[in-house]
Amino acid sequence: MNVVKILEKTGSFAENKDVARDIRQKEILPILEQGKTVTLDFVGVESTTQSFIHALISDILRKKGPGILERLLFKNCNETVQKLIKIVVVYMQETK
């Protein structure tokens, strides 16, 4: 199982977009390119920003299409994090 732990890179408030971009480019995309499934584990992340989630996943959704969500999973997200992910996911489909 390919799991990317967000907390150890961001701390409990995940807001640094540069870090989000690094995670996307260096960790998420290489796994997806191999046709494998990747799980983003938000355990310990108390909050985040729309901008962070956008920098983390929007380019993946735009380039690979929303069907990639079959292989891009989200784990241990609290309510706030879940809502921000949902907003970004729907937003990217609206504006693709």
Partner: peptide, 13 residues
Amino acid sequence: SRSGGTEFNAGAG
């Protein structure tokens, strides 16, 4: 100018 922004900027903040 694209609606929805770039990979780094959503234009929603």
